[in-house]
Simulated assay, not measured.
Amino acid sequence: MREADGERAVGQYPDATPEEALAYFERKYVELNGQVTLLEQRAKGGAPAADIAKSVANLSKSVATANAVGNLAALAERLGALGGTVSELTEQQGVEAKAAGAAALAERAAIVEEAERLAAEDPAKTQWKQTSAALDALFAKWQAHQHDAPRIPKGEANELWKRFRAARTTIEQNRKAFFAELDSAHKDVRNRKQQLIEKAEALAPQGADGIPAYRNLLEDWKAAGRSGKKQDDAMWAKFKAAGDVLYSVKSEIDAADNEEFSANLVVKLELLTEAETLLTETDRVKARELLSSIQRRWDAAGKVPRDQVKPVEERMRKVEAAVRKLDDDHWKRNNPETKARAEGLAGQLHDAIAKLEAELAAAQETKDARKIKDATEALETRKAWLKAIGQ
């Protein structure tokens, strides 16, 4: 192999032609050239500078002593150029590593700050299921960040971990204290509700008469609070069962009463049919007498089924109101003061009508259209007023 300072033997290749021997040592050069090219590409791609520097050193030794035929000097020159690139790469990667470290530190700090925010929440208002899940997610994120993110200075990493651990400890302590207090409160509620259940069950011998007392107990039950869904549901079932005993007795009584009162309902419906004829009656004396008769028979008929009380009473009230209106209207018409005023006004209207009729006759003789029109309108108005006061 010819070099700048002379020739150098690169090896032997026995039992082959000169062409085959030369081709063998040329392939050795091609392999070295491929390694240098690959290293150049890695440097351009931003591979770690330390790895590039190590590979440059190793390849430089291999090229210097290579048993190969080719432009080894060019390879050595390219490797030398890579040495300069490594220096630039080292500086650039140092800047990038610093920036990545700062970003990693900020990300780790954000995890800690979120944990501290959760720790600062009011335990009484905290949704503990969601908060516990959020804390678990933050811890998993912390572990993943430790494993995958760029390394951060040990001192700062330790300080952040202390803060995170303190926040997690605070949350756990608050959670335990909250549920301990809640358990105590639930226990008190359960005790109160158990007492209410016993009182409700003691009402059973009273039957329907115990319902008012049971309703008072129900108000106390609502005010007692909750003691946990499962326990509350089970206790409510017992309390309700005690009430059902009372209401079932009442239902039996109501059913018996309804059967007894059904006949009364038939009588009252017939009386209503008779009474409702008074809605169009104009004779107040006749209406009052018939209504009084119906009311006596109504009272004697007795009670009706509970669900029919309101409908039949409303129909009767409507008839009574109509008869009462007949009396009121009669009184208004025959009230001495009202009558005197009406008669005085009627006299004035009769005088005005006579005068207007004379004016109308005079206007008709003179065929004065305007006076005819005015007199006619005034006359119609006075007659309407006279009719309105019943004269």
Rank of each mutant, 00 (worst) to 15 (best):
M1T: 09
M1H: 01
Q12W: 01
T17Y: 02
T17H: 04
E20I: 11
K28R: 15
K28H: 15
Y29C: 03
V30Y: 11
G34F: 10
Q35V: 03
V36A: 08
L38Q: 14
L38S: 15
Q41K: 15
A43D: 01
A49P: 00
A57P: 04
V63S: 04
N67V: 01
A68N: 03
V69N: 05
V69E: 01
L72E: 00
R78V: 04
L79S: 05
G80S: 11
G80M: 06
L82R: 03
G83A: 15
T85Y: 04
E88H: 10
T90M: 14
K98A: 14
K98E: 12
G101F: 05
A103T: 07
A109T: 10
E113G: 02
R117Y: 01
L118I: 14
D122F: 08
P123N: 08
S132K: 13
A140L: 11
W142A: 08
A144C: 05
A144S: 10
R151G: 13
E159K: 15
W161P: 04
R163H: 07
F164M: 12
R165P: 01
A166R: 03
T170R: 12
Q173N: 14
F179M: 07
E181F: 07
S184A: 15
K187D: 13
K193H: 04
Q195Y: 08
I197L: 07
A200M: 07
P205S: 12
G207T: 07
G207W: 03
A208Y: 02
A208C: 06
D209P: 00
G210H: 03
Y214D: 01
D220V: 13
W221F: 08
K222G: 07
A223H: 03
G225C: 05
R226F: 08
Q231T: 11
Q231N: 13
M235S: 07
W236A: 13
K238G: 02
A241G: 08
A241H: 05
L246Y: 01
E260F: 14
N264A: 12
V266Y: 04
L269A: 08
L269K: 12
T273I: 08
T273E: 11
A275K: 00
E276L: 09
L278I: 11
L278F: 02
L279T: 10
E281I: 13
E281Y: 05
T282Q: 13
T282L: 11
D283I: 08
V285L: 12
E289S: 09
E289H: 06
L290F: 03
R296N: 10
R296E: 09
R297T: 00
A301G: 05
G302T: 04
V304S: 03
V304K: 03
R306T: 07
R306H: 10
Q308H: 09
Q308G: 06
V309A: 10
V312H: 00
V319C: 02
V319D: 00
V319R: 00
V319T: 04
V319Q: 05
R324W: 04
L326V: 09
D327A: 14
K339Q: 12
G344R: 13
A346P: 01
H350M: 15
D351K: 12
D351H: 06
A352Y: 01
L356K: 05
A358I: 05
E359T: 12
E359H: 07
E365P: 00
E365R: 13
D368R: 09
R370K: 14
I372C: 06
A375I: 04
E377D: 14
A378L: 10
T381G: 08
T381I: 13
W385L: 14
I389N: 00
G390N: 07
